[in-house]
Design a protein around this nucleic acid. Structure first.
Lengths: 334, 334
DNA sequence: ATGAAAGCGCTAACAA
DNA sequence: TTGTTAGCGCTTTCAT
């Protein structure tokens, strides 16, 4: 090491840490030499000494339908971690093995990070909840409603906001569309499936209107989403506006509208989907309930910071509001 | 620790490692006790002792347009790492700071992993290449052409394959569509921009046909992609088939076709886009040049394994072929 | 302003 | 089959 300078390790260590009990000149000299020689402090040694890894793990299911990694959320997480000088580990847990007896994933069985961000959104294996409780690792559940230590978008509010936006523009025949049915997903549905609809229907009822849900049932499974949509869209008393559960529902609706109502379909039908970003790839940007992904990441890290700072107390669940971002179509009725 | 058993640390260590020089019964006893007490071996201590972290970092740009994390590629990486019992660190490097003098990201300045997977695809800051060379960290460049230690899809071959597929179905008026122009991307274009077109045009020339490229120029920037498409699509001698640079080009084409050619547009126009998965969200599944993302991940890890195993030699660049996955439309001409 | 010493938790080499 | 010893690279405490 830099005994080339004829000083002790201690001086090196303190210099690089910017310790003020070291002379300015010495610090400079050390820094220069370190750079020249490509000296890289060993993170594991520091971790051992400090009893702390300065790292957290983002835990995902290997089953892609169970945990989707939204880029904006990841960006939020990274930003939050960077602020606290923490590193990020990515851990993918094989669900199948997890339910098998005896199997414990490395992230839990080995001690290698200071906390967990858990991004299992639907169908969390109960085994996992137990394991995490047993091992006492500070952790935050993202996108999932738990008794404590969790954070998720306020989907009820989002459904309400979207609906009130359309009501405010004069729409009366507003339907709610959810096409997730035939997505081959054997797991319990995500809470947002209920919550978004609930927000929508509450707003409709409050306005003295009757909620109408458009969803594919088992009987519709034979027709494509496009055909299914074309079917109800050809109806003369079709809705003038749609709150869509997600972009996957908005897409076939826009395509069918394109074909049936013509290229300027947005004048006859307003679609407001939930999505992580404004939906911009359907010809004209759609007014979108943009989910607070970045904030989710930022806040999750903040909560994990709390949880890691030792005070054992459970942290209150936190719901974050989505925000309606307007498109460039004229969403107004008539 | 488990001096509760009245044995030494060593016995514990060996037992958990499954060392055969420990009696079967002892190993069992230790394992049980470890589980009961929630004992978790400390990864940093092991790392220090073994001079090896058993971890690699996936390096990305904080600039989202510069490194996109494709789920399938990530899955491939995770699978490859799992096989070798390696962990994954995710490191996001702020490009702007990187070009600033003096700034060195933690991943490089600290010693915390055994190798790097670098997922900067276009516009790699030269500073970064230098840093990595200087610090001598085993690394593999993904999705980028370098002199060595890199892996990427064979885009020339992909362009050729897509074109030959359409030629084989009887198409003659085949155009190549690239709509990336107005994507607000100030960086050098990705090599695939050239390579896919090259493969296409080579195949066309080989068949005695004239390549035709459809791309938005500065002059077209005022009209939307949809209008731009509607324009050339209304033409009577429009192409009967399109090789599309990516799904972003295929989408507006499909939408415009929907409106102009009707709901069964696939009978009049075949579109074969490049994409990470078969394009399934445009009404009917499109025959797609599916990029070998998973293989990319798997192979990148394999190459990194080689690079890490000490032999200094540089590793030959590796190109992986994309595969045409047919859709359910009838792509054939007439 | 600098250094000496101790110890974090683990495992490889060797001894018993 | 089990135990002893030593040391990985760093940082904290206390002495100088």
């Amino acid at each position: 090491l830099a005994s080339l300078l004829g000083v002790s390790q201690v001086t090196i260590c303190k210099s690089l840490a910017g310790n003020s009990s070291i002379s300015r000149q010495m610090r400079e000299k050390v820094r220069r030499l370190a750079k020249e020689h490509g000296y890289r402090p060993n993170a594991s040694a520091r971790a051992m000494r400090q009893q702390r890894f300065n790292a957290v793990a983002l835990v995902q299911s290997s089953e892609p339908s169970r945990s989707i990694l939204i880029p904006d959320m990841l960006a939020g997480i990274q930003a939050g971690l960077a602020e606290r000088e923490l590193h990020l580990l990515l851990a993918e847990l094989p669900d199948q093995k997890l339910t098998n007896s005896g199997y414990v994933p490395k992230i839990l069985s080995e001690w290698m990070c200071d906390g967990l961000l858990i991004n299992y959104n639907a169908g969390i294996p109960s085994r996992m909840v137990e394991l995490i409780r047993d091992y006492q690792i500070p952790s935050i559940w993202i996108n999932s409603k738990q008794g404590s230590n969790c954070i998720y978008p306020d989907d009820v509010d989002g459904g309400r906001q979207a609906t009130e936006y359309l009501l405010g523009l004069g729409h009366r025949r507003i339907a709610y569309a959810d096409y997730t049915f035939d997505d081959t997903n054997p797991y319990p549905v995500h809470y947002s499936t209920h919550d978004r609809y609930r927000g929508y229907s509450e707003a409709m009822l409050a306005a003295g209107l009757v909620p109408q849900i458009i969803r594919r049932s088992a009987a519709d499974a034979k027709s494509t989403k496009l055909q299914f949509t074309a079917n109800w869209l050809s109806n003369l008393d079709r809705p003038t506006a749609i709150v869509a559960y997600n972009a996957d529902a908005a897409k076939p609706i826009a395509m069918a509208a394109m074909s049936i109502l013509g290229m300027d379909w947005t004048r006859k039908l307003a679609i407001v989907p939930f999505h992580e970003r404004r939906v911009d790839d359907l010809g004209v940007p759609l007014s979108t309930m943009v989910l607070p992904e970045y904030q989710l990441g930022i806040q999750a890290v903040a909560m994990l910071g709390e949880a890691m700072s030792g005070i054992e107390a459970e942290i209150e669940p936190r719901a974050i509001k989505a925000k309606l971002v307007e498109g460039s179509g004229r969403d107004s009725a008539r």
